[in-house]
Design a protein around this nucleic acid. Structure first.
Lengths: 157, 157
DNA sequence: TTTATACTTGACTGTATTAGTGGGGTATTT
DNA sequence: AAATACCCCACTAATACAGTCAAGTATAAA
């Protein structure tokens, strides 16, 4: 099992998308600035998120990505799954053939752990995250930070 | 966060140790046979388990390892910790400086997840695992398998 | 119709960690 | 003394992450 920057980036980006629905489609460039994630890397992640039908894309100027369904119908576990971070903690991938076709000594422990984590992450929707005060505060801060950066860039040109 | 073969091996080996206390110290060679873990790799893991004072070693013939305290005082989380598999799911290691010294958009989500996992793994002792029927069944199977292997080897010589 | 925007795809690279190997030790019992 | 088993260090192959680069295609606006 692995939970690394990859899955964290994916969830962060999806939450960013959810927090900016009111401005129409969100470009990866915007997400990249706000969340400080490499644009090219975001492209890879969104390719997978699109394949899993978690987002829709709109091409051309003013385009970007949109959530493919309501924020209360998208759960953290689905996002992590989409970018291929397995939540499974067993060695055998849950099949139970860890030792010569039979279960190993600790198979059920890892199965229980996997269930626990999955249950937790599957109980949290993007909508639930959006309602959190800490999330709203960070979002406001990020919007102001990137706004002032944009103004400074305009100033220089 | 990472939970791989490394942590699984460590827990499995510790449980094996716990299940064979009645025969005195358990050699790594025995664990290696029963659990199908490379002996050299086990040595590395037990070096760390020893540093964390989870096991004691007895040198010389008939020697091996022993749990350093009762099985109901050793918890799965401690074992995984001992071999350096971090249970922390945040990017910042829990410090909260993920984005320019402040928290990132999803920091608290990962903190909550880490708490959840830690709570779960810290609630399970080796003693609790030993009582499980599935664990006892696998243990019996392994003892018989390695016993017959030993007999066959004696037969050939 | 041109042009800029922004998505799309694929190949490629550096780095870190895991998982495992191998060889030399040292301590202790028989 | 010889066998056992811990102890320690250096090394390797494979894998996956994280990121880069480059060449496209689709579309809206000018």
């Amino acid at each position: 099992m692995r939970l690394t920057t990859k899955g964290r980036y994916a969830v962060t980006a999806m939450l960013d998308l959810a927090m900016h629905v009111q401005h129409g489609p969100t470009s990866l460039a915007d997400i990249s600035k706000r969340q400080e994630i490499s644009l090219s890397y975001l492209e890879q992640l969104f390719s997978k998120l699109r394949q899993s039908e978690l987002v829709n894309s709109v091409r051309g100027p003013g385009g970007g990505y949109r959530l493919s369904r309501a924020a209360d119908e998208i759960f953290v576990a689905q996002i992590i799954d989409a970018v291929n971070e397995s939540i499974d903690a067993t060695n055998c991938g849950g099949s139970g053939n860890c030792q010569k076709g039979k279960v190993c000594l600790t198979h059920n422990l890892w199965r229980d752990l996997s269930d626990q984590i999955h249950q937790f992450l599957n109980s949290i929707s993007l909508a639930a995250l959006m309602e959190r005060h800490d999330v709203r505060a960070v979002c406001t801060r990020q919007d102001q930070d990137t706004l002032s950066v944009t103004l400074m860039e305009a100033d220089h040109s």
